[in-house]
Design a protein around this nucleic acid. Sequence first.
DNA 1: CATTTGCGATAGTAATACTATCTTTTTAAA
DNA 2: TTTAAAAAGATAGTATTACTATCGCAAATG
Lengths: 223, 223
Amino acid sequence: MKLQLQIKMNEALYVRNPEASDLGKKILAHSVQIIHKYGFEAFTFKKLAENIGTTEAGIYRYFENKHKLLVYLSAWYWAWLEFQISFQTNNIKDPKTKLKRIIKLLATTVEDDEKTSYINEALLHQIIISEGSKAYLTKQVGEDNKQHFFKPYKDLCAVIGEIITACNPKYKYPKSLASTIVEMAHFQNFFMINLPALTDFGKTKEEDEIIAFLNDLVFKSLK
Amino acid sequence: MKLQLQIKMNEALYVRNPEASDLGKKILAHSVQIIHKYGFEAFTFKKLAENIGTTEAGIYRYFENKHKLLVYLSAWYWAWLEFQISFQTNNIKDPKTKLKRIIKLLATTVEDDEKTSYINEALLHQIIISEGSKAYLTKQVGEDNKQHFFKPYKDLCAVIGEIITACNPKYKYPKSLASTIVEMAHFQNFFMINLPALTDFGKTKEEDEIIAFLNDLVFKSLK
DNA sequence: CATTTGCGATAGTAATACTATCTTTTTAAA
DNA sequence: TTTAAAAAGATAGTATTACTATCGCAAATG
C-alpha cells in the first residue's frame, strides 16, 4: 500500500478544489511544468489549457486567475515543506542540530516526492525560488493576507522562530532571523545561478556553500 | 546656483534618453507616481500616457516596454543610493562605523532629494521595496545581466562587500552578506508593514528596529 | 533656409484575461 | 435502473493590453 500525502488547502484559493478531480490534478501538474519552463509572466491559462487538452474556460472553473494559482502553488509548497521538516527533524531533541537540519532542507534541491503524484516538487522548488515572492509582492497583499493565503509560509517561519528561541531564549529577533534564512536560502541560490557577483559561491555553484553561509550567519547570531 | 545630480544610465535600457527631454522626465516622474499608487502589475503605458497627457506611442519612443522601464528605475535607484552612500560615508575611516552608517541608509525611508527634480526618491524607495526584485526575477535575467542592467546593484553590493572585508579580512562570505543585508533591509520593511508575523517589529513598526536587527546580524557575523 | 528631431494624432493587430451559454458526458443518489 | 445533478467540453464574445506603423506639424539646429 502506498501512502498518499494530502495537504488541506485554504478553500478561498480556488473555485473548485483541484485535488478532487482528474482535470484539477492535471491543471496543477501542467502549470508547474509550464511556469517552470516559460516563467510566470509568460504563463497563460490558454497555454495551460492547450497543453492539457482542455479549454480556457475549463481552467477558470478551478482558478479565478493566474495570481490565485501562483498563491495556491506557493501555499502548497510551504505546507509541504513544513511537513518535510517536521518529519525529518522529528526525533531530534537538540534545537541546534534541528536548526542545522532545517537549514539544509531549506537550501537543498528537493527531489520529486513520490507521495504526491501530480506535483513535481523538484520543479516547484525551482519555481518558488524565482517566482515565489511574486505571490506576496503585490498591491493586494493585505487582502490576501486577511484571507490567510500566506498561512503556510508564516507557520513555517513561526516554527523556525521557535527553534531559534529554543537555541537561545535571549536572542531578540527570532522571527526576523527565521524569515531571513528562509528568504536567503532561496535568494542566494537564485543569485548564485543568475547573478553570481552577488554571492561568494559563483565559482563552485555548490548548494553546500549556501548552507555553510546560512549556518555561519545563524549560529554566530545566536551565540 | 543649484547642483544637479546626473546619473549616467546604461543606454541599452531606453530607446530615447528620458533624462534628455521634457517628455522623458515626465515619463520618469509620472511612472514613479503610478507604479507607487497602483503597483507594477496594474501599471500600463496607456495609463501613463493619459496621466501625462501624451499618447501610448509617445511612451514607446522612450521605453521598449514596462519591464525595461522598471529595470531603468531600479538601476537609477541603486546608482543614486550608491552615490548617497559614498557621499555620506566619505570621511569615515573606521570600516565598522562606515558599515553601520550604510545599514542605516539602506533601511531608512529616504526623503525626496532636491538634487534630482523629476524623480521622487521617497516614492521610488517604496517602489523598490515592493517591486524591485521583479526587475531580476524573470526568465530573461541572464540576457539582462549580459547587457549590464544590474550593474548599479552589483556595484553597490561590491562596495559593501569590500567594507565587510575591511572589518574582518577573514570573514568568508562578504558578498553574500552584502546582498543579504541589502535585500533584508527591504524585505524586513515590507514584512513589517504587510506580513508582520514574519518579523519582530510588527507591534512598533519602527525602522530603527530593522536597523538594530541588521547591525546585530552583521557584527555578530564579523566577530 | 533647409533639415532633422521630437511629438501629437490616428489606426490597426495579435494576444490576454476574462465571461457567458449551451451541450454532452460522468457520477452518484433515489 | 432511472434520474438528476455535477463536471467537462465546445463555442462565442468582449474589454484591455501590448505593441507597431504611418503621417504631419512645430520647434530647434546647423
